[in-house]
Write a protein that binds this DNA or RNA. Structure first.
Lengths: 168, 168
DNA sequence: TCTCTTTTGTGACGATCGTCACTTGTATCA
DNA sequence: TGATACAAGTGACGATCGTCACAAAAGAGA
């Protein structure tokens, strides 16, 4: 029942999954690779999220409410995704109760992730935030270049470099 | 169809809607008053969220996944809520497709709120965060005491007091 | 109205972090 | 493999913000 809503799509490094200003009509389930969500602020990019294998990359607001996205999503490696098309997903959801729950599962996962992340800033200092990621998402440190990570953690690239140096 | 799942409950100021360590089995729709969600960190409380009229207060993770809540929710004023009971809500959802969507509407609203909040810290300085709230949630400044607001904005109480002084 | 408590304001000082400028290291690709 | 671009490390300096201590103001209750 789901099959018609699914497509496998490959993105090359730097390719755009979602462009700022567009409406997001897809859920991207990441099979391999990873990607990042970022805002533009003046002449720089601020990373607000990273999506790795088995996570769903999307702009929930844009997807459900049809609003234009304020951020872009780009592949950071060559990335294979399983794309859920919105109209077809909705159609499938009409026929099957189970599929409808996919919607809130997705929102749920996203909310949990965002809440954790927001709390990093309220509960911890810059150094503690780094150590948190070190412990809970070591993969992130291995795969995401430091200059990309810095805006995600709200720390200047130079400071992040020094924090890392301090503890090895 | 929804009626059996609904109860009106009144909470007095300081009353507890959700206790840290408990599983959250309710959605609290706020009719009047407001409440706050907070973590305990050492001997202090860190506010992570405020819920005002027409918003739904809950711990989404705990509600959907049955995990113990890591934070508490307390009334900050005498507060009237419409409580959605989980088992009854699920039962109603079985019979009616429309009701099932309530689940992701709620998660969706929460995710949007959390995302905005997380971005405050990555995109803005302390002063800009204050100005953002001043512009987008002026009610918060009027109703939430400054010492409660400070942890929500990740700013020391004293600094927040000075920021406010600077701009009047 | 008068305590007692809570909230807010203010000064001084130090720690942390951001910024700028530059160097070093590491990919990438013709 | 050499040239170019990108990523990461480093030093110096200043701005911002947190912390501590205390004073003023505002509420709450008897």
């Amino acid at each position: 029942m789901l099959l018609p809503a699914l497509t496998t799509v490959e993105y090359k490094k730097y390719d755009c999954l979602l462009q700022e200003g567009q409406v997001c009509n897809h859920l991207f389930f990441i099979s391999t690779g990873y990607c990042r969500a970022f805002y533009r602020k003046g002449d720089q990019e601020i990373n607000t999220n990273f999506f790795f294998e088995s996570e769903i990359a999307t702009n929930i607001n844009s997807f459900w409410n049809g609003e234009k996205s304020e951020f872009s999503i780009r592949a950071c490696e060559n990335t294979t995704t399983i794309v859920f098309d919105k109209p077809r997903l909705v159609a499938a959801g009409q026929e099957n109760q189970e599929l409808a729950t996919l919607g809130w599962l997705c929102g749920n996962q996203m909310a949990a992730k965002l809440e954790n992340h927001a709390n990093l800033f309220k509960l911890m200092t810059a150094q503690e935030r780094y150590e948190y990621v070190e412990e809970h998402c070591p993969m992130m440190l291995q795969r995401v270049p430091l200059n990309q990570l810095s805006s995600y953690l709200g720390i200047a690239r130079e400071t992040l470099s020094r924090i890392r140096g301090r503890r090895s």
